[in-house]
Design a protein around this nucleic acid. Structure first.
Lengths: 170, 170
DNA sequence: CAGCTTACGTCAGCCTTGTTGACATTCCAA
DNA sequence: TTGGAATGTCAACAAGGCTGACGTAAGCTG
């Protein structure tokens, strides 16, 4: 595959020639953009003694309040031991509340406390601010394309998870 | 900022209303897409006993053969100790060659050996295949937008680095 | 009811990859 | 010749992944 330097792709009305060089630029763009994407929350987390793993947990608990540990596990794609370590500190620090399920008492339902919601808002605001600036700079058509390519880059099961969260939110 | 649920943004010809919900969907799309983005190389690296850090080093050495350690440091944004550990194993394993500089003998210039180029090609092929599929699915206009938003998401210094690599390549 | 499965937590240990700090070497340049 | 820059290396540590094993409580099923 690395022998063929270009791939011809028909899409919509126009022919798209994708050279390895163009694809590599896309790859590098993802790499650098992801750094920017995480930079602002990372700074905030650092002086609170948390890491990216805490951010992810807080984000998705906020996104789907009352979610179970198992569900969160599936979304984050890590082991329960990994998640538990993070979750334990968040609960100890009073940012997350874990309630035993009423229907199924084996399950723990996770909620952000007020303090947890505050942290989430702080992280979220920073990340959204960068996102908003990027969206503004690139323009509405670019944003639509951005979303399309990202979704097409996901594995099938991630796409389902993403869609579920999206439809859940609105 | 988290009180205001929408931000009005004028861009080009049309008004773009960016709700927090829309921005959050973009954030989650980045999260899930990045997982997909790294999944294929990660699998290949795993059974060779390497990690993502090795991939990054190999990628950028291939991209700019003869680059110095300091230059690579700037691109990757890690400490020299971190990079050195990775570089050492790659050199020991005969994937990377480190040549003392002729002009400035303090500098080490890094090159991929044949074996290094083979690994790079393998990783690159996998990552490009996913990229190509995503580009094809989303279409050419989407790709342009994708690239624009990603670039707008980078920090200023990353944008310079990215542009330099891009212009270097072509 | 007995027994299997599920959900969750936890302990122990390992790996990668990031960090800081300290120090040696080499070598260019003022 | 001396200071500073580029590089490498040692040590120690932390976050956050992982596996494996085990325990408990609860639900399900024959």
């Amino acid at each position: 595959m690395s022998d063929g330097r270009t791939a011809q792709v028909y899409s919509g009305e126009s022919l798209l020639f994708l050279t390895d060089e163009q694809l590599r630029q896309g790859i590098e763009a993802m790499f650098f953009a992801y750094r920017g994407f995480t930079a602002d929350p990372d700074r905030i987390l650092l002086d609170k003694g948390y890491g990216r793993a805490h951010h992810r947990a807080v984000h998705f608990i906020n996104r789907a309040p009352g979610t179970t540990v198992n569900n969160l596990l599936a979304i984050l794609g890590v082991t329960k031991q990994s998640l538990n370590r993070v979750l334990r500190t968040l609960i100890e620090d009073g940012l997350v509340e874990s309630r035993v399920g009423t229907l199924d008492k084996r399950e723990r339902h996770l909620f952000l406390t007020e303090a947890g919601q505050e942290l989430e808002a702080q992280l979220s605001d920073a990340q959204r601010a960068r996102m908003r600036a990027a969206y503004r700079e690139a323009g509405p058509e670019a944003v639509a394309g951005f979303r399309q390519v990202l979704e097409a880059m996901m594995d099938a099961d991630m796409r389902r998870t993403f869609a579920k969260l999206r439809d859940n939110g609105q």
